[in-house]
Amino acid sequence: MSATRTASMSPLICWSCRERALGPHFCSNCGKIQQLPRDVDYFAFFGLPRKLWIEGAELEKKFLQLSWQLHPDNFVHATEREKDLSLERSSQLNDAYRTLREPVSRVEYLLAIEGARKEGEQKQQAPPELLEEVFGLNESLDELREAKAGGGDLSALKTRLEAAENNFQEKLAEVDEQLQGIAREWDAALDNNVENVARNKLMARMNDLLNRRSYIRNLVRNVAAELTG
């Protein structure tokens, strides 16, 4: 599958008027809402190429425009078939917007539809360069739990953990920045029509970053939960 391809959104024949339907969501001939072909991805739904830079305001504008047309409120008096199609289309619209709106879930989704997202065993493993810090953090967390159970003094431990939390928050920001860098490379690669090998390499790097990100995020979440709990 070519990454630059924008999937054709419309089925060839309209279910209602049996004419060729050319519009992206509605039949160009009779105006009826159309069924989505199975292979339409979220990028194609918005008529976008599979690029990672998306202008937020522009996407929101398209989302609101399509909401006007596809929302079930518009189909209260329509046939059952059209009601079903509206429900299907508007839920896909919302799913697509929810996914593409956030840069990270956008990357995750791109890798998923390109078949390049691999969580695998790496999910639970600490990235090697973080091992030492993670070890220290886990120790502090154990101490905090013990101190909580034993009624010991928590303030020093909490300060240490808060510092560690900040440290990992910074690392998270770093990962996000790196992810953005590769995303720009990816878009350039699409523009220049580079070969698959190079693109696959970029996707592998993004996949690693996503795994690293989800690992750090879990850490931060656990620390935050211990600190507030």
Partner: peptide
Amino acid sequence: IPRNSTIPASA
């Protein structure tokens, strides 16, 4: 489907 997803929503 996370909370605060615009409805209709699906997975």
